[in-house]
């Protein structure tokens, strides 16, 4: 019964999150065919390899492009749903980790930071490092959710839209963490294999 809980749109939000994570899973499926090649910026030093590994190598840039676009979509969507900032501040406060002032600052800047990362992933600037930053952000999110879980808080993670308290039976920490691990994997792909088409980096002669 919804009347017990503070900000009651949590059910819809979890649905939204599933939608977004579904998208991520799709992309990952396509990633499974990618080659297990060593991380390298120096594409010219590669050996030709077997026909199979050549084909996989040819697919890798497209897989990275997909991971980039998917992550950009996920981050952009999550930034959008966190606004207006009053909602975002509420989500951060629910974790009870920061003082009110710090919570407010994070609440205001986190959606903006996510949006900036989304923009950079989309245009492919400093791809490897933006991928690493995105991965770090996911690790921070996972740690935050795990800490809320461990402390027995009953909150919505606020990953997509408003967080805040929810009824005891409505938490979804396991799903939230699993989803963020999926996003972490996408970020890992971008970081380890930054070479992809349609990237600004190429204009600067990087990851060609």
């Amino acid at each position: 019964m919804c009347i017990h809980i503070v900000a009651c749109s949590s059910i819809r939000r979890i649905g939204d999150a599933r939608l977004a994570s579904g998208k991520a899973v799709d992309t990952q499926d396509q990633q499974t065919v990618r080659p297990a090649e060593p991380p390298s910026d120096r594409e010219d030093t590669r050996s030709p390899g077997t026909p199979m590994s050549q084909r996989l190598r040819a697919a890798q840039p497209w897989a990275t492009l997909l991971a980039r676009v998917a992550l950009a979509g996920i981050l952009g969507y999550s930034a959008y749903t966190k606004l207006p900032p009053a909602l975002s501040v509420q989500s951060v406060e629910a974790y009870q980790l920061f003082s009110p002032g710090v919570s407010e600052f994070i609440g205001y800047t986190l959606p903006l930071f996510e949006f900036a990362l989304a923009l950079l992933l989309l245009v492919g600037l400093a791809t490897r490092y933006v991928g690493a930053a995105t991965g770090l952000l996911m690790l921070v999110f996972i740690a935050g959710i795990a800490s809320a879980w461990a402390r027995g808080l009953t909150i919505d993670c606020g990953c997509f839209g408003t967080g805040g308290e929810v009824a005891a039976g409505e938490t979804a920490y396991g799903i939230d963490i699993a989803r963020d691990v999926g996003f972490l994997a996408l970020a890992g792909i971008v970081m380890i294999w930054p070479r992809s088409p349609l990237a600004l980096d190429r204009l600067f002669g990087l990851y060609r």
């Binding site: 903006l112 930071f113 900036a116 923009l119 950079l120 600037l125 400093a126 600004l200 600067f204 990087l206």
Partner: peptide, 16 residues
Amino acid sequence: ILGVVGAALVVVLLVV
């Protein structure tokens, strides 16, 4: 690399 990372940082600073 320093150049693109710097450019990316500028973008982040501007947006945030």
